[in-house]
Design a protein around this nucleic acid. Sequence first.
DNA 1: CCCGATTATCTAAACCTTTAGATTTGCTTC
DNA 2: GAAGCAAATCTAAAGGTTTAGATAATCGGG
Lengths: 351, 351
Amino acid sequence: MRGETLADIGIKEIAAKANVSIATVSYVLNGTRNVRPKTRERVLRVIEEMNYKPNNAAQSLKRKRTNTIGVIAEDVTVFNVPEIIDGINDCADKLDMHILLTNLRLDKRISRNFDQVDSYRSFAANAVSELLSKQVDGIIYIGIHPRDLTGLFDTYGKPIVYAYCYTQNDVSLQYNDEQASYDAMAHLVKQGHKRIAVITGMMDSIPSRLRFNGFYKAIMEYNLPFDPQLMKMGNWEAESGYRLTMELLELNEPPTAILAMNDVMAVGVLRAAAEVGVLIPRELSVIGFDNREFSEYLIPRISTMDLPLHEIGYQAMESLALLIKGEPIPNNPLPNCKLIERDSVAPPLRL
Amino acid sequence: MRGETLADIGIKEIAAKANVSIATVSYVLNGTRNVRPKTRERVLRVIEEMNYKPNNAAQSLKRKRTNTIGVIAEDVTVFNVPEIIDGINDCADKLDMHILLTNLRLDKRISRNFDQVDSYRSFAANAVSELLSKQVDGIIYIGIHPRDLTGLFDTYGKPIVYAYCYTQNDVSLQYNDEQASYDAMAHLVKQGHKRIAVITGMMDSIPSRLRFNGFYKAIMEYNLPFDPQLMKMGNWEAESGYRLTMELLELNEPPTAILAMNDVMAVGVLRAAAEVGVLIPRELSVIGFDNREFSEYLIPRISTMDLPLHEIGYQAMESLALLIKGEPIPNNPLPNCKLIERDSVAPPLRL
DNA sequence: CCCGATTATCTAAACCTTTAGATTTGCTTC
DNA sequence: GAAGCAAATCTAAAGGTTTAGATAATCGGG
């Protein structure tokens, strides 16, 4: 910790010491005009010596660009958010952009609040407005529950990109939920399963609906028995996985495999199976969703669909950068989930 | 999305429209001088109408204070980091501070790199220097592996606070590891356990050593049998929990309870017990550390010590704010971990 | 060695605030 | 209604950069 403050040294000091004008130093720094190699060297040396770093506040003021984006997370402690931030950050680093993070702490704050819907909107709008006054060049909004947020925020012309939200008109990054669910089914079918049950999330949830589409498509395409008894509506919680598995196992003709729409409900499946004495995967196969870290600590370790969260974040940042530059964003295909094969899937006992 | 850009409206426009000087608007905004209620009203109304937000870049330039701190995380995807950030954010909100987040992605980047130690240092030093040029008022550094970082960074007079790191001279926030481990032991002793084994983390890890101290202290104070065979050195991974539990169960006089220094190794304990046919908690009690989210999805749900991560973050921000103001930071006691009682601890079979 | 054409460098304004210090306004008191 | 004083408001500089436009230096050719 030296005595001199970083801020004490300005471009003025550098100019003086290098015997050039302030402008020249600026040109060296930004490469905006030619400067003779000899002088460039000299300036650079002085900059190095004095450990000069341009004052970002002044730069932003003049440039009307901060190279900083705002990231609004509805809740950073929710499992998929840090990965998305990691992706954003990864890309931001490469683009020399910085991240101003706002954590809405939605879950925590809303539980203390009566009119939930409104307060959530005002929290978010507040965050947007604060970030704009911080002169961010754009905003990425990371929702924890995909839903439609179209036109929610007045960003006064600054671009906004949604990660893991579903909006109609704005730029919004998701992964291919339908395909993922279809792939999971394909995996089960390849093992020989025919009677495959599904435990969905809440049906007002968009991913839940999309995943169901994939399930349904697989049923049709693979010509599997279509049996409404095998379609159970869960609510994302372990308890619902447990309860619905119990129901499934009591069926006259129980399924040989269950597709749980998240790993947490898959835990419920495991519990129910253990309780009834059904062996997994020998007597019942299970496949989850999300590749939560605990999924490989369970006994048995469950197979699951890994979400391309890093990629979502990365692409969100990429798209935002394009929007900031005013360039059109290419129509990328949705990133796909990846099957993680572990120990909860095996061929059915009786073919 | 209106046509006018936020940045188009400056204090000048407000002043003109409200028929006052620029200075007066500034006084209204900051309350730095008296302004007649009538004019204040008028100015505020115009501000409201035109949706004016002060240009933060200009403010920072003049004030030489950005109300922004830098947060450097070694890796945001590591389990304890988001909670810490949440705590920082919670406090920052109250202090009207903003967070510039830098994610070093240490784990990911270092694996691709040869000279690990050096590159880690240069990544971190780089981040510090970038943040300083962004004019942050201070920095919080969140390490993922506690270790000594004293004097690592040249912050040119800006204060820096370490969260979840161990430094000697600088301000550094941890929780009371020793007490936590002691409390866990006390819990087991209260259930009647005497032969308690410990599976440690890597012994070059500071928390591991501190937790061992707590274990040892409990052994002494409760007058428990001191048996080196019951002290196993693990490496934080599930496999080591598994292997060492196997060793423990083969002892002539096996332990009735195991203290695992993290939940991941506790998973290993569960696996080993399941394999050998030892029932948990009837025949063997297990207590973990970290309260990882999976700890309540395991069968049985394991009891564990919850870490005060939110508080660590909150206090880190509090301390940093004091340092920024040049005030002394009070000597708070270390925050404590909290026992989460679940289903993996019961009284031993034979008293 | 000078001229013209390039190329390099400099001067000064602008970006949008904050804030001393100067000036004006509004009130009280005689 | 004027003097005196406090309160309100204004003027203008400053903060560190970028960037047109102006000026100075360099170079090649005759």
